[in-house]
Computed example of a mutant assay.
Amino acid sequence: MAEYTRIIILDSDATLLAPLDELFLLPPSTATMPRAYWLDKPTLASHIMVITPSAAEFARVQKEIDKAGLGVYDMEIANEF
């Protein structure tokens, strides 16, 4: 999807209650994610992500996915970066 300048990724169980247009107005960044406020330690949540697609970044993420063991999920991988 590198032909796009920005992609919004929603978790499969997300329910949209309002437009997400303002997410396209965020300052440029590789990835933007909200904080997981329900956890004790500072952690980013992966239920919604705004990313700038890049083949190089995808390769980095894919490498981490390939290394991930059982019980390691997207939120843990995203927080590794």
Rank of each mutant, 00 (worst) to 15 (best):
residue 35 R to Y: 08
residue 72 V to M: 07
residue 66 D to W: 05
residue 79 N to I: 02
residue 71 G to V: 02
residue 4 Y to E: 12
residue 38 W to V: 02
residue 71 G to E: 01
residue 56 A to K: 12
residue 32 T to P: 00
residue 12 S to G: 08
residue 70 L to A: 14
residue 81 F to S: 06
residue 8 I to V: 15
residue 72 V to Y: 04
residue 15 T to F: 11
residue 33 M to F: 02
residue 5 T to A: 12
residue 35 R to V: 07
residue 4 Y to C: 10
residue 42 P to A: 06
residue 68 A to N: 06
residue 16 L to W: 01
residue 50 V to F: 05
residue 77 I to C: 04
residue 43 T to V: 08
residue 75 M to G: 02
residue 72 V to E: 03
residue 33 M to Y: 03
residue 76 E to M: 10
residue 31 A to T: 11
residue 46 S to T: 04
residue 70 L to S: 13
residue 27 P to Y: 02
residue 22 E to F: 13
residue 16 L to V: 06
residue 9 I to Y: 02
residue 57 E to Y: 08
residue 76 E to F: 10
residue 3 E to R: 13
residue 54 S to K: 10
residue 52 T to S: 15
residue 69 G to P: 10
residue 34 P to G: 08
residue 20 L to R: 06
residue 58 F to A: 13
residue 20 L to T: 08
residue 79 N to D: 08
residue 46 S to V: 03
residue 58 F to H: 14
residue 24 F to H: 12
residue 29 S to D: 15
residue 51 I to D: 00
residue 37 Y to M: 08
residue 30 T to A: 15
residue 1 M to Q: 12
residue 75 M to E: 11
residue 19 P to V: 09
residue 50 V to W: 02
residue 39 L to Q: 09
residue 16 L to A: 03
residue 28 P to H: 11
residue 18 A to Y: 10
residue 10 L to A: 04
residue 19 P to M: 05
residue 80 E to F: 11
residue 42 P to S: 07
residue 61 V to A: 13
residue 57 E to P: 00
residue 64 E to V: 06
